[in-house]
Design a protein around this nucleic acid. Structure first.
Lengths: 390, 390
DNA sequence: AGTTCATGGAGAAACGGTACTTCTCGCCCG
DNA sequence: CGGGCGAGAAGTACCGTTTCTCCATGAACT
């Protein structure tokens, strides 16, 4: 059955050593290309015998369907963009901080588990790079207010799910930690450990994380009647953190406990404390937000707040893929409900409509170590573990 | 000029709110789609007036060319795969170690700079994920001998460049550090600092890095007449490292200097030394291979070997894109030369032919800190910086 | 006046699949 | 005995670009 591909008249020029196409398989198996497509994709009504025969022929010919052609026809590429923010001159902070690294890893893994692959794209990349890639959807990390990129993606119909509650950008959905609850929890924790004046090391940027956390701190201060004691610095500048930590401990109204919002704050504060002869936790209680496990090994070990980035990454991707498949699957599996808005943990998805995009708040986890306890150190107690993986 | 797209008779069904296509632009501008394509891509012979008019119309309509269609037609997707190895049960070690994280970041950046985006793909992902993505080429990190994935990619004509000298897989090109020179340099450095018996903490896996480094160590021992003192452990198991470090220092023939091949070895060895009451660097000289800057802050700071992952990532990607564009550009910019084989720093590219794939060896950098010096600590001396960026 | 040539642009064939629609049977049933 | 039905499979219109070929037209040249 060498009814070659040429017989179909579709290949006028002599075929070079190019890859086998679906037509070659069809010719070799003595069936139509429709049958080949159906057999390989498990569609259509075909007896198992035909199906397996076609598959075998395809295997023998080393046939690999063209992803480009499939994407063009089906409108789905199986590609998800992972937008990473860019600070300063460096292309992006992707993998710079443990948070992003872990989040990205979990996101990649989750996407792959559902048959999608992730494309890493800095938000600042040239427009042509973005539009040169067929994306089924995009995960955007911590979008700034009015991000033009996000707006355009959203407008052009590409689902966008953000990690971090978006400011003014329209997104399909978003996921974030309950930063307010986290900060309040830490402040209470420090209070219970005996802190009388709790300081905050925070950032100058206006992203949601910094803003919500700082606001929660200020609200707490007002509530308990403590004068706020905080220092700010540009979080993306690693050197500035040490300086700010020093400033905070050099103040006349020096705090006896500090919460640092960013990953390196723990070591910065520890070093500053050492310079001022302050002993941790005796003279100074310390907590910082970090995903790094180096704080389990510092002297003393430092209590950290984990944002559980893996959980976030997984959730974000799943939400995005739900949106992609829900919206486009045609069957219209109406998962829609209510009017959208913030809800707690078990994420759901809203298919269409107006109003605020649905958001999901994920809990954080406080890993209590010696630096925030005046007695019985070395105990590691976690907040009650919520359901869900990771 | 509402000569609508329907006039062409190509859109029988009523157009919904879909994105504008090139036909819509052509109709709106009153030209043919060829002209639109040429105008937008800077091709063809068109007066500037037409060009700018078409561009303006396209802009007004919010036209974005379909990446899928372009890919199908041109055979180029602008996508590069970044294959990450997978250890144990975790999906992949991507971003697990600082080396990979930095390398990936540099690779992403380099690719973007040349108009390509990176797709992160674990080597273990299901075959269908791989073949579902149109890749112009692939970067593979540390391929194991006879990697079937790499073989198939290579066979199907996709350029493959590996980070790490490949074992038996055919690749287009590869980049690696000069591990032998690095290890010999460290051993000499430790010797000069007064070490009499240098131990090695190495891995059990058979990847090139581990193998070459260990062999270099053994060769050095034989040359200087020292009995080898080393312990091995599965490098992907973080807990095993501490145990192995302990074993090494518990030996009757305890070394007075140790080089640890993996990132966490520094802290592991430091902790083990403390347990045995050994002072660093007085009783024990320490060097480990790491990209982490925590070793600048340990007590004492630890001398590290940096593999300069950013430089590697950049080089790998550039080599790959050279291969992609060199092979397919048709113009045949014959960069070809010689017969291929290992060469030092300035990377070149071989277009075709048989024989060993061209490899590029990149130098490493020893960051000397207190842990490997008996006198005058705190000095940071680098190896002479080679040309090239980063 | 007829041939070149450059200019500006249109036509249509791919690219390689997928998904409707249609066709041909053989069979069952009224 | 005709029509409906369902299985098995083929036909073919797209998906939205790029690119190759070709066609006018007018100016310049012989």
């Amino acid at each position: 059955m060498t009814a070659a591909a040429n017989q179909s008249g579709r290949r006028p020029t002599s075929r070079r050593l190019e890859r086998a196409g679906i037509r070659d398989v069809a010719a070799a198996a003595g069936v139509s290309i429709t049958t080949v497509s159906d057999a390989l994709n498990g569609k259509g009504r075909l007896p198992d015998e035909t199906r397996s025969r076609v598959r075998e022929v395809a295997e023998r010919l080393g046939y690999r369907p063209s992803a480009a052609a499939r994407t063009l026809r089906t409108g789905r590429s199986g590609l998800i963009g992972l937008t990473v923010t860019t600070y300063g001159e460096e292309p992006f902070t992707f993998t710079e901080f443990a948070y992003f690294a872990e989040m990205a890893r979990a996101a990649t893994s989750a996407a792959l588990g559902r048959g999608y692959a992730l494309v890493v794209l800095p938000a600042s990349s040239r427009h042509d790079v973005w539009s040169n890639i067929a994306l089924d959807g995009t995960v955007v990390i911590d979008p700034p207010d009015q991000d033009p990129l996000v707006s355009e993606l959203y407008r052009s119909g590409v689902p966008v799910v953000s990690d971090g509650k978006p400011g003014n950008c329209p997104v399909t959905a978003w996921v974030d930690n309950d930063h307010e609850a986290a900060v309040l929890g830490i402040l209470d924790h420090l209070s219970e450990a005996g802190a009388r004046r709790i300081g905050l090391l925070t950032g100058t940027s206006t992203d949601t994380y910094t803003r919500l956390s700082t606001e929660a701190y200020l609200a707490w201060c007002k509530r308990v009647g403590q004068e706020p004691v905080y220092e700010t610095y540009p979080a993306h500048d690693p050197a500035a953190g040490a300086v700010a930590a020093d400033r905070l401990l050099a103040r006349p109204d020096r705090p006896d406990a500090v919460y640092g919002l960013f990953d390196p704050n723990g070591t910065d504060l520890l070093a500053a404390a050492r310079r001022y002869g302050l002993r941790v936790p005796d003279d100074l209680l310390l907590v910082c937000c970090s995903e790094s496990d180096v704080y389990a090994g510092t002297e003393p070990p430092i209590t950290t707040l984990s944002l559980k980035p893996r959980r976030i990454g997984t959730t974000v991707v799943n939400l995005l893929i739900d949106a992609i498949e829900g919206v486009d699957s045609g069957t219209g599996v109406a998962l829609s409900d209510l009017t959208g808005g913030t809800r707690l943990f078990p994420p759901r998805f809203r298919t269409a409509g107006t109003g605020p995009p649905p958001g999901t708040l994920m809990p954080t986890e406080l890993i209590v170590r010696a630096s925030s306890q005046r007695r019985s150190p070395r105990t590691t107690i976690s907040a009650p573990r919520p359901p869900g993986e990771v």
